[in-house]
Computed example of a mutant assay.
Amino acid sequence: MTTSNLHRQPAPPLYERIKGTLREGILSGHYAPASLLPSEAALGEQFNASRITVRQALADLQNEGLIFRRHGKGTFVSQPKAFQNVTALQGFAEAMSAQGHAIRNRVLTLRTVPAPTDVAQALQLAPGTAVVELHRVRLLDQLPVSLEVTWLPEALGSIVARADLVTRDVFLVLEQDAGVALGHATLAIDAALADHATATALDNTGAGAALLRVERLTHDAQGAPIDFERLYFRGDAFQYRLRLDRQVASHAQSILPLQSTV
């Protein structure tokens, strides 16, 4: 037996090859967003595969969010997800507009309420202190992608309440109208399921649909908390991206050379 035979890797299953070819075609733009993929029968003929094998490949691509199916119409290429980098403190419209997206907001409620315990704690206020609560749906290219719930101390909230909240980010209102210098924000990101109210606000999202939930507490340049938010993004339409650099701790021990005992 030759060395080359010893190290030869088995060929991947046929459905993996079909999936890889289709994925490459989707990511390269050969299959454009919203375009109709070839039928299962056509793919079976193209790859000399059974319909079961083709369906397995398509099921994996659907699980990855690259395609979706419409009953009686076929399989279509998904629209690419919009994304926001979290390496800088930016409002949603600020970040999306820079990528060429059109942003509008649908204001659901704007009111003054007693601060719930968790909100008061985040904003370093006494429980029950009056805060301004804002609920908005963010529309990306006319598609509702997130529900944003914001709490602000009353003094700042009253300024935000007078602004055009249909087109402007709260961050820009705080900077431009209230004269607040923003400093930093802390984020907590996890998964959630849409309840009935959130599903209704996001239109086509059904109750129980997967959401990306972001809790963000923004501080001014002096470090005081001024803006507490809970953001609920549609998992099928949006993602956060960030870059992580490797940092070696300065106090890490050096590797000592081995000493001979001979």
Rank of each mutant, 00 (worst) to 15 (best):
M1I: 08
T3V: 13
Q9D: 05
L14W: 04
L14K: 07
L14C: 00
Y15H: 11
I26W: 09
S28N: 02
G29P: 01
G29Q: 03
H30V: 13
L36N: 08
P38F: 03
A41H: 12
S50E: 09
R51D: 02
T53S: 02
A57S: 12
E64S: 02
R69E: 11
S78R: 09
L89Q: 03
Q90K: 15
G91N: 00
A95Q: 10
S97H: 12
Q99C: 02
Q99E: 13
G100I: 06
V107E: 10
L108M: 11
L108A: 07
T109C: 04
T109Q: 10
V113P: 06
A115C: 03
T117H: 15
D118H: 14
A122L: 11
A122G: 08
Q124S: 11
A126P: 11
V132P: 01
E133N: 05
L134V: 04
H135K: 09
R136W: 02
L140W: 08
L140D: 03
D141L: 00
D141S: 02
D141K: 05
P153F: 10
A155G: 11
T167D: 03
R168H: 07
V173Y: 03
L174M: 05
E175K: 14
Q176A: 02
A178C: 02
G183V: 00
A185R: 07
T186S: 10
A188N: 14
A201P: 06
A210R: 04
L212G: 04
R213Q: 12
V214A: 08
L217W: 14
T218G: 01
A221M: 02
P225E: 05
I226G: 02
F228M: 03
R230E: 04
L231V: 13
Y232H: 14
F233Y: 10
A237L: 15
Q239A: 15
L242D: 03
H251I: 09
A252Q: 10
S254D: 10
L256A: 15
L256Q: 09
L258R: 13
L258K: 15
